[in-house]
């Protein structure tokens, strides 16, 4: 345990609980939401966007239209491969004013930019997904283009652990190694659960770090809710001469007692009044 918390870490910690509140609000107002994985991925996405390690300044302003033209884009790339955990990305982008926060209430409503699975129509989002296993390959394509164009941009991809059961992930690992995509960083949200049980029961990934190492990647392991550790590793990742995998050990349903480690909270139609109040209370305690 790191006893020293920098002001930045403290800021991220507080923000993490505030945005958890947004996620809980969405779970109360939404028609359907994947909450377990969104709560586990939140701190990782927050670190990517708010730790000043990467550059996400260009698309921030609501007033200027998002820059989508690849040749004019100067921001680093972020790709969310498990499209179902998009609520976690949406609350971060709303906080950064990529779009108005009011829009969160319209999540998956007809006509809203905030689709049930992440969509490129959201300002700042490069890639629509929902079908698991494709995002890391897409990110590798982006990273290769930058490498060939001699751009210094970083491509950060977030993948989920269950998603690693898809063969395509392993095809991407070989590809990134072959082309030495050293500006590609894959953060794995290892929350150890999927829809119908623990990843260990459904299809064990066993020693994921060893597998990545054998595929030629640089591997770091972190506690995915410890901002000190995450930001330290993200900084280190920028210096690698190979593609980097950060295995982030996270808690499924992080922060809400009755959701933690319960795969039945993979997705839900709507929180009950009782659940909503309880979750709100728990978050409030952390914000005190």
């Amino acid at each position: 345990m790191n006893l020293f918390f920098s002001p930045q870490t403290k800021k991220l910690q507080k923000l993490s609980w505030q945005l958890r509140q947004d996620l809980i609000d969405m779970s109360y107002y939404a028609g359907h939401i994947h909450i377990g994985g969104s709560l586990s991925a939140l701190d990782l996405i927050l670190s990517v966007y708010l730790s000043d390690i990467f550059n996400f300044s260009q698309n921030k302003r609501m007033r200027s239209p998002p820059v989508v033209d690849a040749s004019k884009r100067t921001d680093d790339n972020f790709i969310l491969s498990p499209g179902h955990t998009c609520p976690a990305l949406y609350v971060v982008l709303a906080y950064l004013k990529y779009f108005s926060k009011v829009e969160l209430k319209n999540y998956n409503k007809m006509g809203s930019i905030l689709q049930g699975h992440v969509s490129k129509d959201v300002p700042g989002v490069l890639y629509s997904s929902g079908s698991l296993g494709q995002g890391l390959s897409f990110a590798s394509g982006l990273a290769l283009a930058d490498k060939l164009d001699k751009k210094s941009r970083y491509t950060i991809c977030l993948t989920s652990d269950g998603e690693h059961q898809e063969g395509q992930i392993w095809e991407a690992l070989m590809f990134a190694n072959k082309y030495k995509l050293n500006k590609l960083i894959n953060i794995v949200d290892c929350n150890k659960y999927q829809i119908n049980g623990s990843t260990q029961d459904i299809m064990p990934l066993d020693d994921l770090a060893a597998k990545y190492i054998h595929f030629g990647w640089t591997v770091k392991e972190v506690n995915g809710h410890d901002f000190n550790q995450i930001t330290k590793m993200l900084k280190l990742a920028k210096q690698s001469d190979r593609p980097v995998c950060i295995i982030a050990h996270t808690t499924f349903g992080k922060g809400i007692s009755f959701m933690q480690y319960d795969y039945n909270f993979h997705s839900l139609d709507r929180l009950t009044d009782f659940q909503y109040k309880k979750a709100q209370k728990e978050i409030k305690n952390h914000l005190k």
């Binding site: 939404a30 028609g31 359907h32 998956n108 699975h117 929902g130 079908s131």
Partner: peptide
């Protein structure tokens, strides 16, 4: 599959 959107 209404709420899930285009991919689903």
């Amino acid at each position: 599959t209404s709420a899930y959107g285009a991919t689903h």
